[in-house]
Design a protein around this nucleic acid. Structure first.
Lengths: 188, 188
DNA sequence: CTTTTTTTTTGACAAATGTCAGAAGAAGAC
DNA sequence: GTCTTCTTCTGACATTTGTCAAAAAAAAAG
């Protein structure tokens, strides 16, 4: 649970009183590999912090899923648009490895917004951060070729390349597995 | 200025006292066509509400800019990542038509966060909304072909197609102007 | 360890888009 | 209104990626 506090402290000053409210809501859950955390058509009811593990964001398809994100330990995850609006999720979250989460429900979060002085600020900053990451990715999808996106991943996030199956990476980059296989060949 | 209040009322209940603080900061500015509102390398110092006009978001390039967004009246605009972090903007905002804005500076907004009960909530919801729009766009960039993106624009935002030069639309969709010209031909 | 399933690689060809170049059309400047 | 500039369209060809199919490699199941 200290990991969560440390993460939040980076965002906003958090005194013991605020942390008390926050931490009293957190519930620990463990999931095995390939567990679907949120299914399409369901309403996301959790905002979760990854203590350990890897989670994939994707739209399930008969042939190949469209994978559009990966999250690792020390990051918050959620089908956040579904969560915020409490409407059906368009995409799924699935663990790629055994995963430990600290979770808040939607009503937990409303309590935090109402009963802490820093809740809203945290919520704002988290949303701002999510927005900035999406902006960066959008520009990369428009600006860079598939090969450039792959090379960027390689330099910025070596971890991605090593742990994640090619077919998911390919989708994330925006090409077919065959195309990424050829890109790899061309580079090396 | 009523347009701004109406917009905010949709987000959160706004009593006269809160609105008083908010509206006292707003300053009206008028810009002619093709005015650059934020330049790359500069820090964005404004969060602006479009009373009237059209604004384009883009990364300037020697040959063709990379256009990644358009905003119309009754929407807030900002190089929001630059604004939030008060760091240099990677992209530019430019008016496409004569434009009237109601503007807040960064310090204005900090005052609002500190002196109103609803400021943080508005900030959070605005950021959440921006995030959701980016998510939608990301999925479209990965999921749809250029042609499908064009057809979606056509059905969802007829306004886009009519008012905006093809070369900007092409970039927004993620293809060259020539390619979009051929897509149009193919469809009709 | 062996078998089965899944993932990755490779080939061949089709389809789509990029690139270069120039013509036609539209918009802006004077 | 005419000239100039910018935008859009069209053609030809190169390049990239998608698609279908199958082999090789790796991972999972028994």
């Amino acid at each position: 649970m200290n990991q969560v506090r440390e993460y939040l402290e980076q965002i906003v000053a958090l005194d013991d009183k605020n942390w008390e409210v926050f931490s009293s809501k957190l519930k620990k859950s463990e999931f095995s590999k390939k567990t679907v955390l949120v299914k399409t058509g369901q309403v996301e009811n959790h905002l979760s912090f990854i203590e350990k593990g890897t989670v994939r964001f994707y739209i399930p398809k008969v042939e190949n899923d469209i994978t559009f994100g990966f999250k690792f330990e020390n990051q918050f995850i959620s089908a956040y648009d579904s969560f915020i609006t409490q409407s059906k999720s368009q995409y799924q979250l699935e663990t790629m490895t055994p995963t430990t989460l600290w979770r808040l429900t939607f009503s937990d979060l409303q309590d935090i917004y109402n009963n802490t002085t820093v809740g809203e600020t945290i919520g704002r900053k988290v949303a701002e951060n999510l927005f900035m990451m999406k902006t960066k990715r959008e520009l990369s999808l428009l600006n860079d070729t598939a090969e450039e996106r792959y090379l960027k991943l390689f330099s910025e996030q070596k971890r991605f390349i090593k742990e994640i199956p090619l077919k998911y990476l390919a989708s994330y980059i925006g090409v077919t597995p065959q195309a990424l296989s050829r890109i790899r060949k061309r580079i090396s």
